Simulated scan of single mutants.
Amino acid sequence: MSFPPIRPELAGIEPYGAPQLDVPVQLNVNENPYGPSPACVADIAAAVSEAATGLNRYPDREFTALRTALASYLSRDTPHGVRPEQVWAANGSNEVMLQLLQAFGGPGRTALSFAPTYSMYPEYARDSLTRWVAGRRESDFSLDLDVARDLVKSEQPSVVLLPSPNNPTGTALPPEAVSVLCEAAGDGLVVVDEAYGEFRREGVPSAVELLPEHRNLVVSRTMSKAFAAAGLRLGYLAADPAICDAIRVVRLPYHLSAVTQAAALAALRHEKELLGRVDELRAERDALVVWLREQGLEVAESDANFVLFGRYADRHAVWQGLLAHGVLIRETGPEGWLRVSVGTPAEMTAFKTALTDVNGERA
């Protein structure tokens, strides 16, 4: 046995992560480009300072106040409302997803999604010793519901992962797709990952509305994107209380620190401000889609704060060319495609100028 004695299936694997490079325009990890105001920062600092006086004690294991605040926020997306006992939170939606796979996946069980999709999903399955199955999306990155339903019925997965909007394509699911797959999954969970849900176009509903209809439905969110709090690391879900109770079995003791809880509650108090730029980012995204198409590029429909575009015979050369111009985007998704986050107007201008130059150099 070689040292260190890592699990054989993990040997030689590179850890997940986008390039972290110090360049003037960073549009590669779908961050919100607008930071919190001085007033919000001061409120978060005061809340953290107060929490620090009790750091000799463990935090509230059930994070009761935070669950109540998150339930109130989610209730705005459904006439049925969301109760605190339906809410669970963890250190980013990544930990939420891993806990779901730990609780409901495992040896002899299957997790399923439809590619192209978020690259961490198969890693959650791998880390929880869960069999991974990936169906395929259509050429426009939508789902053929008949094909998807048949795959779910044949595989009978314990967990179906459905990002909406999808990452890296930005594609949102219609409500009927969620209902069809919840019914096909039987007692298996259907997790609708709405990490970018606040950026969806007008008229595109949240799957939160469907929670009363499907006891096996889980809807996850994050404060990283629309709330401009990627550094906070706070993700959460809404589901049947029995699902939240099951997750308690696998959570690490006191997994949400007192500092995280205090900072998240303070950020939620500034919801109006932090979400105030979402409409601007939506408009910037839609304008970017139009512009990219005017350049003769293929562009996926997006309900997120990023846009997938292509196709290039050598996408890495385009990525490298943009980097040389001081613009960092993401080389991800299907072969030939690139993904750019939506930034400020100045950042979008810099991206467009750089891409025009790079495309011209390659013509």
Rank of each mutant, 00 (worst) to 15 (best):
S2Y: 07
V342L: 00
Y73Q: 06
L288D: 00
S220K: 09
L308Y: 00
R131K: 10
L275R: 11
Y312E: 03
N216Y: 14
A226S: 11
D146W: 09
S93F: 07
Q295V: 00
P36G: 04
D314W: 01
T53Q: 14
P107D: 08
R311Q: 02
L234M: 14
L173Y: 06
E271K: 08
G326D: 08
S128I: 01
N305S: 10
T169S: 15
R149I: 05
S139Q: 15
L143G: 11
A238W: 05
Y34V: 04
V190K: 02
R269V: 05
S257T: 15
T64P: 06
E347P: 03
Y118P: 01
V192G: 09
A46N: 07
D303L: 01
A45T: 13
F309A: 08
V259N: 01
L252H: 09
A230F: 12
P107E: 13
L10N: 08
V307T: 12
V192K: 04
E123W: 12
E123S: 10
T110P: 11
A238F: 10
G276A: 08
Y118F: 14
G106M: 01
P205D: 00
R76H: 12
D245H: 13
P4A: 11
R293F: 07
H316S: 14
G186P: 02
C40G: 03
Y58G: 03
A228M: 07
A228E: 02
A238M: 10
L74S: 07
G135T: 14
N56V: 05
F351Y: 06
E194R: 06
T171F: 05
G326C: 10
M223C: 14
D22T: 10
G92P: 00
L292Q: 13
R233F: 12
F141P: 05
K153F: 01
